[in-house]
Amino acid sequence: MSYNGRYISVVIAASGMGKRMNSNINKQYLLLREKPILAYTIEKFDNNEYIDEIVIVAREEEKEYCFNEVIKKYAFGKVTNIVGGGAERQDSVYKGLLAVNSLCNIVLIHDGVRPFVRNEDIINSIDGAANYNACVIGVPVKDTIKIVDAKKDIIDTPERRYLWAVQTPQSFSYELILKAYKEAMQKKIIATDDSMLVEKLGHRVKIIEGSYSNIKITTPEDLKIAELLLSQL
């Protein structure tokens, strides 16, 4: 089903090493109930009625494994390309953006190890990109946040009501995010997430409230939480 005539692409970043997982298998291929984390993630977008294509960014040496053990094994029909990643996440996402279909109007960028994104959050992200050209999914922080210096001395306590934990998907007009990435490459700007590059252009980014269950699996403790979340589905 078309979304108001727009072509919707998804770039899934799945080229991380997962050093904090203390595993000899990269985190996106770790199994949850005998199924790779990445497969759960792709499935959410493959099943969404508005998504037209999915581009996976994997480590160059894992592209064949990704195709055989995830894409082919679980018959994901919307995956059109698996591209090799770069040195950093930012480089990898840029490669993914360059690989989407030329018809793309809106692109969602998502972490391969966030398998619990809800369908409603995907739809809200598409709506947000259509209405504002740039939006991110996030949740209000529950804890008080402290800003500390290099010596670990607290130097400030920002007001919690203004603080949100940002997740993915982060969703954009394709033209806007590509412009942001190209400028970042030219100016050697390093960002911790995609929306920061759009902010650097002076463009406003809307935040949309998502779910606390949309966790990023990066540590052994996260795996245990993921197992619990799966048991509740």
Results as ranks from 00 to 15, higher is better:
residue 141 V to Q: 08
residue 133 N to W: 03
residue 193 D to I: 01
residue 146 K to F: 10
residue 165 A to T: 10
residue 153 D to M: 07
residue 166 V to D: 08
residue 188 K to I: 11
residue 158 P to I: 07
residue 151 K to F: 05
residue 165 A to E: 10
residue 174 Y to M: 02
residue 127 D to K: 14
residue 165 A to Q: 12
residue 184 A to I: 07
residue 194 D to M: 01
residue 129 A to N: 05
residue 157 T to L: 06
residue 129 A to S: 10
residue 138 G to K: 08
residue 193 D to A: 11
residue 143 D to F: 15
residue 173 S to P: 03
residue 161 R to T: 15
residue 164 W to M: 09
residue 126 I to N: 01
residue 126 I to Q: 08
residue 192 T to W: 15
residue 131 N to T: 15
residue 170 Q to H: 04
residue 181 Y to Q: 06
residue 127 D to E: 13
residue 165 A to R: 14
residue 165 A to G: 15
residue 132 Y to V: 09
residue 132 Y to P: 03
residue 137 I to L: 13
residue 172 F to D: 01
residue 173 S to E: 07
residue 154 I to C: 03
residue 178 L to S: 07
residue 182 K to H: 10
residue 130 A to T: 08
residue 131 N to Q: 15
residue 138 G to D: 10
residue 174 Y to V: 06
residue 182 K to S: 04
residue 152 K to E: 04
residue 177 I to M: 05
residue 177 I to Q: 02
residue 165 A to L: 14
residue 139 V to F: 10
residue 182 K to V: 12
residue 126 I to D: 04
residue 147 I to C: 01
residue 145 I to T: 12
residue 127 D to I: 14
residue 134 A to E: 04
residue 130 A to F: 09
residue 132 Y to C: 08
residue 184 A to Y: 06
residue 144 T to I: 13
residue 134 A to T: 00
residue 132 Y to N: 11
residue 132 Y to T: 12
residue 185 M to L: 15
residue 180 A to F: 00
residue 159 E to R: 04
residue 129 A to M: 06
residue 136 V to W: 07
residue 190 I to P: 01
residue 171 S to E: 01
residue 146 K to L: 13
residue 137 I to F: 08
residue 190 I to A: 14
residue 141 V to C: 15
residue 144 T to W: 04
residue 148 V to M: 01
residue 158 P to G: 03
residue 171 S to C: 11
residue 177 I to N: 01
residue 133 N to S: 13
residue 126 I to A: 04
residue 125 S to H: 04
residue 151 K to A: 08
residue 187 K to Y: 15
residue 182 K to M: 15
residue 188 K to P: 01
residue 155 I to T: 02
residue 142 K to D: 12
residue 126 I to W: 08
residue 185 M to C: 15
residue 157 T to H: 11
residue 174 Y to I: 02
residue 171 S to D: 04
residue 141 V to S: 13
residue 148 V to P: 05
residue 135 C to K: 05
residue 158 P to V: 03
residue 172 F to A: 02
residue 157 T to G: 10
residue 138 G to T: 08
residue 178 L to C: 09
residue 166 V to C: 15
residue 191 A to Q: 01
residue 189 I to L: 11
residue 139 V to S: 10
residue 154 I to Q: 05
residue 139 V to G: 07
residue 132 Y to W: 11
residue 187 K to A: 13
residue 126 I to K: 00
residue 187 K to M: 14
residue 174 Y to G: 11
residue 190 I to W: 04
residue 152 K to I: 05
residue 171 S to V: 02
residue 168 T to G: 12
